[in-house]
């Protein structure tokens, strides 16, 4: 019996693993090799051991970009996931026009980043932007947003969360479809309130979906690039220079492919460890095995 299951297991993963071996494993291994060389992306790479990694520990620009990225991830992942779940639950209510609302929430996901960036720059504008005119009308503090080294990163975070809600919302929505409505009905009869229904039914049953959303968000937040590339190019004064932006610069502008690869592997190690911890945590909470 077991042997049959094993054989079928390999059979089912075979197409995936062949593609994986040809198109992903080699680039993955090769870029690790490059991280041990002085490759500039052109001349045959020279092996230099762990020199790139040693250099990284002293590279203040890299260390700062790591801090910026960490800060970005710590804020956007939990806030983004929570808001997406909330949006999914709202949009799972049976109501008229729900298809239209769902589409509205999904629009930021498909709208081009360039278009989004131009609009948000305008929203953030300190002279005539929409946000600060509202803040002014309410007598609130008007942040300098993208114009300041302190506020530029939060500005990008807010925009990223906004853009990401629709993506995760779709996944949560799909997850919610797997929960039988009869569970809620019997809970209602037992007198459970909305909050209790959420903590006792929705959240536990969405466990696997949440793990997916959180891990994917972690992976993509650590690799945030497009927003920075389009909106600030890492400025002002490097306050939004995230790791992947620095990797991009090193790989394609500074002729430092090897050094860029070393950074990529440091980033990889961090994401991998965080993901591992996250799955362990999720498993511990797992009651029914």
């Amino acid at each position: 019996m077991v042997r049959k299951e094993t054989a079928w297991g390999y059979f089912f993963i075979a197409p995936m693993m062949i593609g994986f071996a040809v198109f992903m494993l080699y680039p993955f291994v090769y870029s690790f090799y490059l991280s041990l060389t002085s490759s500039d992306g052109i001349v045959a790479p020279k092996f230099i051991g762990f020199d790139n990694y040693a250099k990284l520990l002293k590279d203040t620009t890299f260390l700062r970009s790591l801090r910026v990225t960490l800060y970005f991830t710590l804020v956007t992942v939990p806030v983004g996931a929570a808001l997406s779940l909330l949006a999914a639950m709202l949009l799972n209510i049976k109501m008229r026009f729900v298809t239209w609302y769902r589409t509205a929430f999904f629009l930021p996901v498909i709208t081009s980043m360039v278009a989004i960036a131009t609009v948000w720059k305008w929203l953030y504008n300190t002279d005539y932007g929409l946000i600060n005119s509202i803040f002014a009308a309410l007598g609130l503090y008007e942040p300098p947003w993208l114009a300041s080294a302190k506020w530029a990163l939060p500005s990008i975070m807010i925009m990223s969360i906004w853009k990401g809600i629709g993506f995760n919302m779709v996944i949560f929505l799909a997850g919610l479809q797997g929960i039988s409505p009869s569970l809620y009905e019997s809970a209602k009869i037992d007198g459970a309130g909305a909050f209790r229904r959420f903590t006792n039914i929705t959240f536990p049953l969405l466990r696997h979906t949440t793990v997916f959303v959180v891990i994917m968000s972690i992976i993509s937040s650590f690799q945030v690039f497009d927003q920075v590339y389009v909106m600030t190019q890492g400025g002002p004064a490097k306050s939004t220079s995230v790791v992947v932006y620095y990797i991009y610069q090193n790989a394609f502008q500074f002729f430092q492919q090897g050094y860029a690869s070393a950074m990529a592997y440091v980033l990889f190690a961090i994401i991998f460890i965080v993901t591992l911890l996250q799955t362990r945590l999720a498993k511990n909470k797992d009651v029914d095995g």
């Binding site: 960036a117 720059k121 504008n125 300190t126 300098p144 947003w145 993208l146 114009a147 400025g235 002002p236």
Partner: peptide, 10 residues
């Protein structure tokens, strides 16, 4: 306009 103002102006 300062560099950051230009950045913000987009």
């Amino acid at each position: 306009p300062s560099p950051s103002e230009q950045q913000a102006a987009g």
